[in-house]
Amino acid sequence: MNVIEIEKLTKNYGKSRGIIDVNLTIEQGEVFGFIGPNGAGKSTTIRTLLGLIHPTSGSAKIFGKSCFDSPEVRREVGYLPSEVFYYDNMRVIDLLKYSASFYKKDCTKRINELAEIMDLDLNKKIDDLSFGNKKKVGIVQGLLHEPKLIILDEPTSGLDPLMQQKFFDLIAGENKKGATVFFSSHILGEVQKMCSRVALIKDGRIIKLEKMSSLQENSYKRIKLETKSAMYKDAFNIDGISKLELKGNSADFIYKGNINSIIRRIGEFELANLTIDEPDLEEIFMHYYAKED
């Protein structure tokens, strides 16, 4: 069964671009990654799906229904926005109970479980919480009714690495229990860890839709290094290197290929410094564009 069906979805904001002709189908039990740079249209897609934004044309359905026509389908949806804000003068537990009251089932047990996992004090006022703790409230709030579809919009901003790990474990657990996960992010690494399929969006259009496994074969690294002695000119004239910039004793490039062979080459030099990063998405997208043209 398809949990999410997005067909020819287009949204214009007046003259400016929102999203154009987006098509996506997500099956039950999938962890689906949705990545793209900021402003590419990820949030617009999600907000249309959730019934917050009206589409200009096309349709976005959850469990076969549009949130505008059948708001009750959202009973099975848990949503975690990138930035969470709640009624400041409420206590955490009161907010969670208010949230639970929309789902017509007893969520008390799940609230306590989740609060314990996320290490969240239920008796504090929301106003007194730090950004990270508010985010935890958001996580508990999004999961307390054990939704069948979990929609995450840049969920990890504001969480420390330890909490991120707990959060991913939590989501993986929900997925094992049968929940479908729609995971939007601009951090490729995050998506790589969890997702089975991924869609890349840029400038409002889906430019690539593929299995995570095939994306991983194309794993890109951004490598920066500084050497103590001068490098010979053709040192990095090897396959898989692109965007090479050589300046005196430093080199900066994107590498795609067997990580061992590049490390061996780098090992030939006396290094002063070395960083290996995920390249930012823009750079990867450029590759995709280049391939398609």
Binding site: L52, P71, R74, E83, F85, Y86, D88, F102
Partner: peptide, 15 residues
């Protein structure tokens, strides 16, 4: 104003 739309308006109730 209080930026709670992402809370209330995604609940399973009509606008």
């Amino acid at each position: 104003r209080e930026r709670t739309a992402d809370f209330l308006l995604v609940k399973p109730v009509s606008r």
